[in-house]
Amino acid sequence: MEKTEHKGKPFLEIFASTLQEDYRFPILELFTFLYTLGTFIFVSFQTYGGVTNEQVAYTMVTSLMGFPIFIFIILIFKNIAYGLGNDLEKGTIQTFFSYPLKRRSILTAKLLSAIVVALLIFLGIQISALYLLAPDIISNYIGTVLLTYSANIGYSLFLAAVLLLMTLKVKRGGLALVFGIILYFAIGVVNGILTVIAFVTGSAWPIQIIAVINPALALQQHYFSTGLAGSWTPSFNEVLWYVGGAFALVAVMFSISYVYFCRRLSL
C-alpha cells in the first residue's frame, strides 16, 4: 500500500479531535448561551460610573465581564481537569503518544482547545456586545478595553496554569477538578484576608501582593483609588508592569507544565 505524497498532519488532527471532545454537543452551545446571557443581563441592569470616558469604558467592561468570566473559568477548569485529566487517567494520552508527534505538540494542541478556543468565544461575545452598546467609547478607548480584559484574564490564566500543574501531577480528572475548586476558593479566602489586613493597617502592600496574580486590582486602583487601599494609586506604567508580571508568571507556570509533560510525565 502506497503512502500519500503529503505527510500526515498529526498536530491538526489531534487538535481537531480534542476540539470535538471538549466542545461536543451541547457543551459549546451551552457555554455560548451562558456567555451571551451573562453579558446582556449585565447590560440591562448596570449603569456606568466614571468621570472620564476612559473610566466609563473601564467600568463598562468590568461590569459586563463579571458573570461571563466566571463561566470562562468553569469552562477551562472543565477542559483541563475533566478533559486532559481524564485523558491521563484513562490512557487516551498513551494513545496520542503513539502518534508521530512530539509531546510538547500534543500538550499544545490540548491547551489550544482547552483555553484559547474558550477565550476566543468569550472575547468574541464580549467585544461584540461592547460595540453594540457604545461603539464610540469603545473605538476611542480600545486600549483601555484590551488592558481591562488582559488584567482580568490574567488571573483566570493563572488559575488555569496552577490547575494544569495539579492535573499533570495527580493524573486524575475528578481529583484535579476538586483541587481546582479548592484552589479557586482558597485564593479567594487569601484575597479576603489580605484585603482585611489592608483595611486594618491602611497600607497598600497586601493589595499589591494580590495584584501580582490578579492585576485587575491594580487597574481598579488606577482608575478608582478609593476604598481599602485608597492611598495606593498606581500609575499607568505601574499597571502595565503588574499586567506584564502576571502574564510572565503565567508563562513560567505553563513552561513548568511543559517541561514536566515532556521530560518527566510517566504513564
Partner: peptide
C-alpha cells in the same frame, strides 16, 4: 465521543495514508 470509522480515518490522516 467519536465514531469508529471517523476516528480511524483521522488516524489515516495523522500518518498520511489513504
Amino acid at each position: 465521543y467519536q465514531k469508529v470509522l471517523d476516528y480511524i480515518r483521522r488516524v489515516c490522516r495523522i500518518f498520511g495514508i489513504p
